[in-house]
Design a protein around this nucleic acid. Structure first.
Lengths: 354, 354
DNA sequence: CTGAAAGCGCTTACAG
DNA sequence: CTGAAAGCGCTTACAG
């Protein structure tokens, strides 16, 4: 009989079914185990009676596969896109039959995830240093970078959004549909890759429409609500200091808008919330006096006043893609060098539409 | 030399350090390994040079401890409180030196998490059936229930919020500060435990103030935005059908409010969004004509129009508490039978304050 | 202070 | 169709 109340082992199953553990193992692992129908039935019966599940550790030890992948996250910034990200990764893991380990990166000590407990890991943004990534490479430990480009010289599969295209299309929308010409841009944090690509998209869209790039319209929003608010207040202040008229009432009752800009691309949706607050405080109506757009389609985007026009990228998709690339890397030894995910324009009221 | 480019084993370390693997193991596991200072230094040197980390699988197999805990989630509903929940659980896992496995529960097959790959799991809400929980109990597999009470007759540690107290305090606020007397309540889904406790809190607060419970004011909102919206529309419709006056302008310019209610407790914040929409459509001003309050302090609460007065419970705390209880259960064999977490009133504009 | 050896629960050639 | 045996990389009495 099975010992005590602990979990049954393959040995218990073998004894109760009257066969060797080899046979049990085969039934467990092979699609068409070479056993008589009768024996097979008996074994399956015992397995389900005992509720037997093979110990992962023992299995790993003999196959040297952990059947687990890891998702490594940075310490902070887990918020808005985290649920869909995890949902995507989890779905991928399940689909390919892997367990999923999660860890957030701490300053001290080695990563909680690595060759000792997983077959490979998805590294999200800057959750691992260049040096650590490089160390994994020499060990040939599979990993895929999500929202992060590989360190120089290293050829590591990575997945990213079409930040540039997404930005280009939302700026195009402002220019072509709403006739904007002075579009402010709030940069993300220094060194942030998403921000760098968005800036390229911003410049490309301007250039394609023959609009000169104006450095005075580009400031730091840091993808942060209150930084963005301050940045816009400064833009307005600078403009006033130059003696500009801003909103000039005309004799016919209409208004001549000579404001600091006719649109603000906030860099991301968090910043956009700050931008909206700053504009409202300054007495600007959005979108009547000035348009505002974001990026990400974060949860608060639809609750903004007015609801925010923005760019959406499917985060689920990103997680799933990264995971399936990782699995390919683990099982076949190679995968695509990178995946670039499409984005989609989400039109709401803050740009002037609707 | 270490084989190929794979990971080094304890054997590699022993060879390079010129000692037995027993000694290496001791250095790895004992706080004060009985080795000469000189040997110790040499060993640590080799370990860091090789970047050696013991294989979790091998370690588990010999100790029969996985050094991992699991977090089991239901298939859906990962959204708003998910990041803080995971943050809490992850923090707990790290603190006690456990790896963290995550899985969402699927209909088919056994749970991806169990005795075969973890030392215990935190079961979130209804991610596991009563029968499966019971099966784990007979195996003495440690688990802690989060936001879920144990199946009948089973004595399983669980952690929950003070839903009743939290509700009582927000209803008290409506009554005592804002003089509300006719407070509608939108129930959560049938069978939902949080909802049941909130209803008890609602009734207790009314009773404490000598206000009769009026079944006509209690309807189903299902913790869902559009269900809640419909429910409120129906409340308004029923009221009108009875020929009530609603908002009656008086000769002195003020308004006599004979509306269906003077406040709505939406059950949760998702519902509150639907309630606000229904009231606005029906021409009611919040909070001037009617107060609205929610529960959870979900992210959208501060973005609502007007910002939502609600009840907050620290989800981080819940995750952390559940995790430390689980660890205690794993290491000491027992822990507290349950933990009841406090809530906090979050006052914003929708109740009439500010 | 140090090591040889058994054993954890599986898988997988190898042999029949 | 079936099984005995070696081995995966550790830990831990046991012995010195």
């Amino acid at each position: 009989m099975p010992k005590k109340t602990g979990s049954p082992t393959i040995r218990d199953v073998a004894r109760l079914a009257g066969v060797s553990i080899t046979t049990i193992s085969r039934v467990l692992n092979e699609p068409n185990p070479p056993v008589s129908a009768e024996t097979l039935a008996r074994i399956q019966q015992v397995i389900s009676e005992l509720n037997f599940v093979p110990q992962s550790a023992a299995r790993s030890l003999s196959t040297s596969r952990k059947n687990a992948i890891g998702l490594l996250l940075p310490r902070i910034g887990w918020d808005a896109y985290f649920p869909p990200l995890l949902r995507g990764v989890e779905a991928g893991a399940v689909e390919f039959g892997f367990d999923l380990l999660i860890a957030s990166r701490r300053a001290e000590g080695p990563s909680a995830l690595g060759p000792h407990n997983t077959d490979g890991v998805v590294v999200f943004t800057d959750s691992l240093s260049d040096a650590e990534i490089a160390a994994w490479q020499v060990r040939k430990f599979p990993c895929v970078l999500l929202h992060r480009t590989p360190p120089d010289g290293l050829n590591i599969p990575h997945v990213q959004y079409e930040n540039r295209d997404g930005t280009r299309s939302i700026i195009n929308h402002l220019i072509e549909v709403h006739g904007c010409r002075r579009i402010a841009f709030l940069r993300g944090p220094l060194g942030n890759e998403d921000s760098a690509w968005r800036e390229l998209g911003y410049r490309a869209a301007l250039e394609a429409h023959g609009i000169a790039y104006d450095p005075a319209l580009v400031v730091d929003g840091n993808f942060d609500e209150s930084d963005a608010r301050l940045a816009v207040e400064k833009l307005i202040g600078n403009h006033a200091a130059r003696g500009a008229a801003d909103l000039l009432p005309l004799s016919d009752g209409s208004v001549l808008n000579t404001d600091f800009a006719d649109a603000v691309f906030a860099g991301d949706d968090d910043s956009a919330v700050g931008v909206l607050a700053a504009l409202q405080n300054a007495g600007r109506r959005v979108p009547e006096d000035i348009a505002v757009v974001g990026f990400d389609d974060a949860p608060q985007a639809r609750f903004c006043i007015p609801p925010l026009t923005t760019v959406r990228a499917s985060i689920d998709e990103a997680g799933k893609t990264a995971t399936s690339m990782l699995v390919e890397l683990i099982t076949r030894g190679e995968t695509a060098p990178m995946a670039l995910l499409p984005t989609e324009l989400v039109i709401r009221r803050s740009c002037g539409c609707i």
